[in-house]
Structures are given as C-alpha cells and as structure tokens.
Design a protein around this nucleic acid. Structure first.
Lengths: 219, 219
DNA sequence: GGCATTTTTTACTTTCGAGTAACATAGTTT
DNA sequence: AAACTATGTTACTCGAAAGTAAAAAATGCC
C-alpha cells in the first residue's frame, strides 16, 4: 500500500540500538512521508506507527503529541531551505543569478517529504504559538527572496514593478511543484524544474534573441 | 468570529420562502466559505449550520453527506472557470492575448469561496469515484490551457519549450493566489493579479523596450 | 378547519482516532 | 541477582464530529 518504506531502526528481531536521536528522526521521517501524502488530518498516528513496525504509544515517547510532530516536520523542512541560502556568494553573480540558484534549491527541497509538508500543509493546522513560529520562519524566507529581487533590480538583472508581489508569486509558483505527480525518474524532475524556472525568468512572451547571447541565463 | 455572513434565506423569524433550490445554494455557499477558510477536515457541519441559523440535520436534507457537499463546492468552482472559456473569441486576438484574459478570469475566480475550494482542497479528500470526476474536469481545464499555449506558439506570440509544463506552471502560479491574505479592497486585489500576470508574461529578466511599444501587452 | 406534504428540530447512535495509564521486557549498573 | 532505567506494548478513556430516527412544526390544499 505504502511506497518504498522509510528505513526504520526498529527491526522486528531484537537487535535494536539504543540511539534515541536516530529513532526520533526515523519517527519524524515517517510522519513527514505520511503527512505529505495524505495531509495532516487524514494521517493517523496508528498508520505512522505501523510503517515503523511499532505501536502508537511509542511515538508519544519521542514526541509530545501529533501537533508537535507536524510542527517539527514543517520546521525541519523550512530550515533545510533557510540553510541553503548561504553558499559561495561571489560578488560577481548578478541578483538574477543568485535568485535562480535559490529557486532551484527551493524547487529541489519541495521534492522531499519535509519540503512538501512545509509547503502543502497550512500553518492553520497548528496552535497559535506554533503557527506564529512557522509564520516567522516563512516571513524570513520571503524577506530573503524579496531582497534578492531588490538586489537584482539594483544591478539591472531583474525587472519588477513590485518586489513584494514578485517574491510571493515566485514562491507560489514553486510551491505548486509540491502537487506535481512525479515519476521516480530524477531526470524528468530536474527537467521540470528547469522549465519551470525558465518560464519565470524569461516569461511567456518571446524575447528578441538577435542581440542576446544564446545562453542568456546559464546557471 | 466569522466574517461577513453568507446571505441566508432562513430568517430567524418565520418569513421563509419554500424555494428549495435557493436554500440548497445557500447551504453550498456557506459550506464553500467554511471549507475554503479552514479546510475540509477542520470544517464542522455544525458550524456550517450555525452560520445559516439552522441545525445540522437540515443540511442532510439538502445534501447526502459531507463529502457530497465538498464535491459540489469543488465542481461548482471548476465549472465557473470552465464556463468562462467561451467569450468573444475573435480571430484577431493572439494566443497570448487569449491566454492572458483566461488567466485573469482564472485569477478572479480564485478570489471566490468556490474557487478557493477547488484550488486549495485536494481531491484526495473525496472518494475514488468523486475524485475521478474532479480530476476529469481539471484535466479538461489543463487541456484548454495547454491548447492556448500551443496556439500562441503557432502564431508566434508565446515562447515555450514545453506546453505541458508551461500550462502546469501557470495554473500552479495562479493557484497560489488562493493563499494570499487579501484585503477587502478590491483595487489592491486587481493590482496583485495584474502584477502576477505581468510577471508570468514578461518574466523576471528585463526586456529590451527600445523597439517595443510602451504598452506591449495590453489586455 | 382538517389532512397531506415539506421542512426542520430534538435527541440519539456511531465511529474514529488522539491521547493515557499501567504493565512488560530488555539492557545496564552495582 | 537485584534494582534501576530506557523503551515498548496492551488495553483502555475520551471527545469530537458525522450521521440518523423520529417527532414536531410549518406550509399548502381542499
């Protein structure tokens, strides 16, 4: 029924290690898989436990409750993204180039279970304090994105009437990748991402390629 | 707690009309409002009933069950969109122009409760037969969109490496509008939509405006 | 007014899944 | 080996919300 199983440190046989942290991560991964597949409310902890060859109360040994599990999934997903901002940030790169590589990382993230959790599950599912933390992280990401747009406008590599809206639109467009029914084939996925980003960069309207170099926007 | 109330043919006083169809629509509208606000699972029929000054079993008089209610909301939302395809379809319009006005209608639709239901709620919430019908309608819309892209490529008004992916990306980008926290101010909303579509049409990279007329892509 | 039909309510059953208490077992320490 | 700690399980409670049965009220018709 389930796809390829999330690897589990619990063997049915009794060769279990006592590595709490690893097991906690395994619980998180299994939850992320299921949350991202069927959404928060349809996901049952019994099912998460079943995937791990464990019973439900075990999950409560590692996480306070279902919401804490969701929070950790979303937070983890968003932090993967935030962490990716750093990187060789040579001054030679134009704002557009930096933005493009950021978008590419963003898109790849969304192909993961944690990424899809972060993107597809509304923070309304969470209690107010948790939701606030998540919104805070998302606001940071939005700010980063907006800053890149502004930088690109400054150096002439990006045209935008409104960085606020542009940043939102970019994030929104990429988020929809979380709904794409992807094949296992990684090549196809990467191709989709590239096409996607090309569309955002070049737009629908044809460009005049006569005066531009053929590889206008290489990575 | 709730925003402006969906208008209801039930008055608390006994001046009720016996127009079953009207009441059914009112039930649908109230459900759409709540589904689009809090999602399917968090929405309770008691709450829907409360909004209408009615009790829960009344809803069952108009709809078989909760799922039928959701199905009707989504179907209605999508049909509003499908219906908008027709229109003065002069041969003079370029593929891009037709696509743009379609996108604009699409975007406006998403500002409605039904539209947000159709766009934000996964069809996985539905039973297999219902889900199948919805996917069918969505596939039709996707086909229309793709056809416009192909037409635009043929007449030179659109550049795209892959109409399939382009159509998906366009729909995805617009769908994210369903998550924009909008003000009541209609002007702002329209402005956002215009910016949004401009981004998709013109792209992030600056264009050479030297040879183009200032209003390259008027509606 | 009396009778049938439609519409709505009150009061209930049912189901599902989150969360818990209390016990069980394995490994570790002394 | 006894006692302690970490990890899991069995078997339960509990609440929320879907869904239903049957009575009740409104409406229309003669």
């Amino acid at each position: 029924m389930r796809g390829k199983t999330v690897s589990s440190p619990w063997q049915k046989a009794p060769e279990r290690k006592q590595q709490r942290a690893l097991k906690r991560e395994a619980v998180l991964a299994a939850a992320a898989r299921i949350f991202s597949e069927v959404g928060y409310h349809r996901a049952s902890l019994d099912e998460v436990a079943r995937v791990l060859n464990v019973t439900k109360p075990t999950l409560y040994y590692y996480f306070k409750n279902k919401e804490a599990l969701l929070f950790a999934c979303i937070e983890h997903g968003l932090e993967m993204l935030g962490g990716s901002v750093e990187g060789p940030h040579t001054a030679a790169e134009s704002g557009l180039q930096r933005l493009m590589s950021y978008l590419r990382r963003y898109a790849r993230l969304i192909e993961t279970d944690f990424g899809r959790c972060a993107v597809r599950i509304s923070d309304k599912e969470l209690s107010e304090p948790s939701s606030k933390k998540i919104r805070r992280i998302k606001a940071d990401i939005d700010r980063e994105l907006r800053q890149m747009v502004v930088d690109g406008m400054a150096d002439g590599s990006i045209a935008s009437a409104n960085p606020q809206i542009t940043a939102f639109a970019l994030a929104g467009a990429l988020n929809s990748l979380g709904h794409w029914r992807h094949r296992e084939d990684q090549t196809v996925t990467d191709k989709i991402i590239d096409e996607y980003i090309s569309l955002l960069v070049d737009g629908l309207a044809p460009r005049d390629h006569a005066k531009a170099k053929p590889d206008r926007h290489t990575r």
